[in-house]
Computed example of a mutant assay.
Amino acid sequence: MIAKLQLIPGAISEILVSATETGMLTLADRYGLMAAILDESLDEEEQRAVNRIVRSVLRGRLRIQKA
């Protein structure tokens, strides 16, 4: 049985703001991003925000908090 992930409205912008302020992605942020990536109904702005976050991690601007 596969669990259905549901993205909370406004979650992507909250993750982006929080990550920008702290320079870090938390475990909760990562789960939110996973739900966002699996959600096929993201609008263009949300897709761009997810892409910005991923690029920031790849470039070393955001760190991933260890669990």
Rank of each mutant, 00 (worst) to 15 (best):
D43F: 07
L5Q: 12
I8A: 13
S41W: 04
G60K: 11
M1Y: 14
Y31L: 10
E44M: 09
L38F: 13
T26K: 05
T22G: 03
I15D: 01
D39T: 14
L58I: 06
A3F: 15
V50S: 00
G60W: 13
E21A: 08
R55C: 03
I15S: 02
I8H: 11
A36N: 00
I37F: 01
I37V: 10
G23R: 05
G10N: 03
A3M: 15
R55N: 08
G10F: 07
R55Q: 11
V57L: 10
L42K: 04
R48W: 05
I37M: 03
E40G: 10
R61F: 15
A11D: 03
A3W: 12
S18R: 12
R61W: 12
L38I: 08
L5M: 15
K4L: 11
L38K: 09
K4D: 07
E46D: 14
A49M: 04
G32I: 01
Q47I: 01
R59Y: 14
Y31V: 04
L42Q: 07
L38P: 04
K4W: 08
E21I: 09
R61P: 00
L42W: 04
L62P: 14
I2W: 05
A11R: 06
A11E: 03
E46G: 00
R30V: 14
R30I: 14
A49V: 00
V17E: 15
V57T: 12
I53K: 02
Q6R: 13
Q6M: 06
P9G: 02
R61T: 08
E45K: 03
